[in-house]
Amino acid sequence: MKDVLRIECSRHNLQQVRDFVRAFLHRRDLPELLVNQVVLAVDEVVANFIIHANGEDAHQVIELQLVVENHYLNVEIADHGGSIYLPPPHVAPNLAEYIRQGRKGGMGMALVNRLMDRVEFFTRDQHTVCHLSKHLA
């Protein structure tokens, strides 16, 4: 089963993304903890695309595709903006150092990597794509 959502690059659309993902997963009668983990991970990636890749330019579009097959949820988030956004490779942050420095931000992708089984960023047709995968069984 597959569902697709297209949104403009505005933070105002993040609630629509969360609602879309939550509804898709609830139709599959999945545990609430798993639903919340996926919603949080997808929200973080979409927010990064909106803010960092597109500068909240509402003329740009992000497409979100959710597919369940063979007990795996596959999420593809495709950025149709004019720039390529590939975050640096995942390195586990030093939490004690973050706290000592009083830093804010920069922890989102570390969280996504912990919540999902697979996180990949790549380019396709001059667009950035993030693929997230989670085993459901």
Rank of each mutant, 00 (worst) to 15 (best):
M109S: 10
L34V: 04
H127K: 07
L30Q: 02
H59A: 15
D117I: 07
I84H: 11
G102P: 09
V17W: 15
L64N: 09
N94A: 12
G108T: 06
N36L: 07
L5M: 03
G108L: 03
L95Y: 10
T123D: 13
I62L: 01
S10C: 05
A53L: 06
Q65C: 09
C130W: 08
V68Q: 03
E8D: 12
S10P: 11
V75T: 03
Q101P: 05
A41V: 13
R11F: 00
H127Q: 12
H90V: 10
F122D: 10
F49W: 02
L136A: 00
E120P: 13
L25H: 00
I99M: 08
P87E: 07
L33H: 02
L34A: 07
V21L: 12
A137G: 09
L33Q: 10
R114P: 00
A92P: 02
A137N: 05
A110F: 10
G82V: 08
P89D: 08
V46W: 02
N54Y: 03
E69M: 10
V4L: 04
F49M: 11
K2I: 15
V21N: 09
C130Y: 03
R27W: 00
R118S: 08
D29G: 08
K134S: 02
V35Q: 09
N94Y: 04
R103K: 11
P88H: 14
D125G: 12
L5C: 01
L40V: 11
P89T: 08
G81C: 03
Y85N: 09
F121T: 07
L86N: 08
H135F: 10
A58F: 04
P93V: 00
D57M: 06
D29T: 07
R114V: 04
I51R: 15
A96I: 11
N48L: 07
M116D: 08
G55M: 12
G82E: 14
V75D: 04
M107N: 02
E44I: 13
R28P: 11
P87T: 07
M107A: 13
I7A: 08
L40M: 13
V42C: 06
S133G: 14
